[in-house]
Amino acid sequence: MGNPIIRFSHATFGFPGVIALKDITLEIAEGEFIGIIGPNGSGKTTLCKAVLGLMRPLEGSLQIFDCACEELRCHHRARIGYLPQKGRLDQNFPITVLEAVMMGRYGVLGLFRRPAKQDQEIALQALTNVGMQDHRDSALGHLSSGQQQRVLIARALAQQPQVLLLDEPTTGIDITTQHSVLDLVRRLHRDLGLTVLLVTHDINMIRSQVDRLVLLKTRLFAAGAPEAVLKLDILQQVYGKDLVITEKDLIIVEDYHHHR
């Protein structure tokens, strides 16, 4: 693995009176594929917002690309491709696939610069990378959930990022599409050398894909190779009686499924 590009050092995040993440110490190296797991309200989305520079630590520090997150500028943020949680997208928003992907270039270009032909080529290449090149003129809202996720991943790729941050990319889509989205992310990680941070509830689906798992429950409960993190005693401490492990070693978290 490469050099550390994201460094949490005893970092605590939250709002006045509410601590969402406490005393996090974690290093993420260039080129790693990391899965971030934990129960509802464990601080996964807070971790995403922190990495994006949208939240500052109340205590401790967070360094992103050798820059303290308090000093993170727009051009730093443009190096992180972000796929937000599904469900935020307005299905009736009048935007074509290519227009949505081109938005990935806007932060990179900065103010006052118009997208040029080269930017459109980068956007089209991103669409090709996710297999959506034939839908460039389709309305985004007309696509299926899986196709929309692919387009939004292409939007993140159009930034030509170093880090790809995916918040629940497989939630709310059918099982076949879930596998195809994960295969796509795995391929992008391998072919483009991206550092991938993938937040998910679905432990079974990503356990064989990632280099490391980070298990959160307000604190950093465990971090390491999947086989080291997914131990019965560790999982029971985090998920309690909501946890069921089947004979085929499948991990089912009742809490999550009841809340969906």
Partner: peptide
């Protein structure tokens, strides 16, 4: 971009 998704715009480096 902010009309489409303000948080996504901010996360992508747009002021």
């Amino acid at each position: 971009f902010i009309a489409f998704d303000q948080e996504m715009a901010e996360a992508s480096g747009v002021p």
